[in-house]
Amino acid sequence: MFQEYAQFFFFLDIIAFLAAFLLNVVKGNRNILRLYFLQSFAVSVVLMAAGILEGAHGLLWVGALTFLIKCVMAPAFFFRILKKYGSSASSTQYLSLPFTLLVLLGLVLLAYSKVFLPLAPLAPEALGSLSLNIAIVFVSIFLIINGRAAFSQIIGILSLENGIVLLAAFVGIEQPLALEMGIIFDIVVWIVIVNAFIGMIYRQFQSLDTRELKHLTEE
């Protein structure tokens, strides 16, 4: 990444991390969606800005598409879901808030620990961002595990994906545009499919709380 703009990129990375962190803490699905929007916006800006600064049209396109899908399409889909099933949807966690904060702290410390020091040569000029992106990955995984609502699990997966995209951007991996499009296409199909499943779950269980999904254990 560009040295003269390093602080700008790091600032966007911090926004993405804070969004991932707060996703684990806030109550209410609409707040979760807003945080996801914010995180995705930061990711899109990183990609577009890098594309402009590097003169890489492919990266610019990927950034624009990311914005279109993650900041426009996905929130529109999810808002529709929340409007339809909002009354039953909750965003509580299995662990209490103090325990959740403790685990999050542990995960962030792990991301900054010596364990991942061997990855330093991947981005010697953006070491802070590398650790921060690994922290986004861990914190997002925790959201998937700790969230009781199907909606939290979906946002957890998408936040994890954002963390990986940021990591790839900061270490400077560039795949041909066709491959980037392939990954984005997979994500789009994934969003459409989970939307359909959310509807199916609600129709069959009258709830989006994953604790209600116990037909398999009762068999």
């Binding site: 499943f197 199916m200 779950i201 999904l213 116990k214 037909h215 398999l216």
Partner: peptide
């Protein structure tokens, strides 16, 4: 389209 099948697919 049964609840148990939807649950398995979600998992």
């Amino acid at each position: 389209n049964k609840p148990s099948a939807t649950e398995a697919a979600w998992k």
